[in-house]
Simulated assay, not measured.
Amino acid sequence: MRSFYHYALTYRGKKEPDDKGRLADWMFYDHEFPKQSADYHEISNYLEWNSPFTNALSVFDELWDAYKLNDLE
């Protein structure tokens, strides 16, 4: 199972980034982000304390749901 971070990186590099891309770019540049984690609570807690933009937590929840669905396939 790959980490959430590696899943989220698939949203990076868009010409016109949306919120998912913005979060993925921020995670890439944040050296303290728990990059090896696949634990919802660890990542959610980190984002609560270090949120890069207003709706980052709701974007994270959307990405997390897609991440878990992708893991089941």
Rank of each mutant, 00 (worst) to 15 (best):
M1I: 06
M1E: 07
M1L: 07
F4P: 01
F4R: 01
Y5W: 09
Y5E: 02
Y5C: 05
Y5D: 02
H6D: 13
Y7L: 06
A8T: 07
A8Q: 10
A8F: 09
L9F: 01
T10V: 10
Y11T: 03
R12Q: 14
R12N: 12
R12W: 01
G13N: 12
G13R: 07
K14L: 11
K15Q: 03
E16H: 07
E16V: 12
D18C: 00
D18V: 02
D18I: 00
D19S: 11
D19W: 01
K20V: 00
R22K: 15
R22D: 09
R22G: 01
L23M: 08
D25Y: 03
W26F: 15
M27T: 00
M27D: 02
Y29K: 12
Y29V: 02
Y29I: 01
Y29E: 09
D30I: 02
F33Q: 03
F33V: 00
P34H: 04
Q36E: 14
S37W: 11
A38S: 15
A38I: 01
D39C: 10
D39K: 11
D39W: 03
D39F: 04
D39M: 01
Y40L: 03
H41V: 01
E42C: 03
E42W: 01
I43G: 11
I43A: 09
I43K: 09
S44N: 13
S44F: 15
S44E: 14
N45V: 06
N45Q: 15
N45D: 15
Y46K: 06
Y46G: 05
L47E: 04
L47K: 05
E48L: 12
W49A: 14
W49G: 10
N50H: 15
S51T: 15
S51W: 06
S51N: 14
N55C: 04
S58Y: 08
S58V: 11
S58E: 15
S58Q: 14
S58P: 00
V59F: 05
V59Q: 02
V59H: 00
F60K: 10
F60N: 08
E62Q: 13
E62F: 09
E62G: 08
L63G: 09
L63I: 12
L63K: 06
D65R: 13
D65A: 13
D65E: 15
A66I: 03
Y67A: 02
Y67M: 02
Y67K: 03
L69W: 00
L69F: 00
N70W: 11
N70R: 11
N70S: 13
N70G: 00
L72E: 12
E73I: 09
E73M: 10
